[in-house]
């Protein structure tokens, strides 16, 4: 009896990373990568949650921030202004918790690409606006070098998001708590 059960277990030891005694494969795998992923999740997720919460008290501000970029037609500006904080909040929460990490990181990366493009075009056209990244938004007297540093920050967050798209399994994720891994597979 016990021998019959040990055989597949030892086979797993030979082929797979750190299987548990019950035969399932441990999350998230060995190495320093999952720790880097954890850091990426906390930083990017934290930024999204803060960015969202700061916008909630003043929806007009959020709408004005979108309008100030002077890219979108007025018909969709209020909708997008109301839509973005909610998306930012759930992306941030998912990343902080480590649930649906890869889809959340994909959305995060897409948003950041859009934001970098929007800030760049505002800079290139000589618009003088607040990026509205963390509340605020609209016209400002002199954005000075803020465009540059906003782009640097967003590119950094974009790289961290890209890491999570590539390696979504991280330490201290809620995923293995809520989802059981299929036995005998690396799943």
């Amino acid at each position: 009896m016990s021998l019959v059960h040990r055989a597949p277990d030892s086979a797993h030891h030979a082929e797979g990373p750190a299987p548990r005694s019950d035969g399932s494969v441990s999350w998230p795998g060995p190495g320093v990568g999952p720790w880097v992923g954890l850091a990426a999740r906390l930083v990017v997720g934290g930024v999204w949650v803060v960015a969202s919460l700061l916008k909630l008290p003043d929806p007009q501000q959020s709408v004005r921030a979108v309008r100030a970029y002077e890219v979108l037609p007025e018909a969709v500006v209020p909708t997008l202004g109301a839509l973005l904080p909610g998306i930012e909040l759930v992306v941030g929460l998912l990343l902080l918790l480590g649930l649906a990490t890869r889809p959340a990181a994909v959305v995060s990366a897409v948003l950041l690409v859009v934001f970098v493009a929007a800030i760049s075009q505002a800079w290139a056209r000589g618009l003088t606006i607040d990026c509205g990244c963390f509340g605020g938004g609209g016209q400002v007297a002199d954005p000075g070098s803020s465009y540059f540093w906003e782009i640097v920050r967003d590119v950094g967050l974009l790289l961290a998001s890209a890491w999570l798209v590539a390696r979504p399994r991280t330490r201290m994720s809620l995923h293995p708590v809520l989802f059981s891994a299929p036995r005998g597979h690396r799943g």
Partner: peptide, 8 residues
């Protein structure tokens, strides 16, 4: 997400 959207 929907709740925040409708609220805003």
């Amino acid at each position: 997400a929907g709740g925040v959207f409708v609220y805003l």
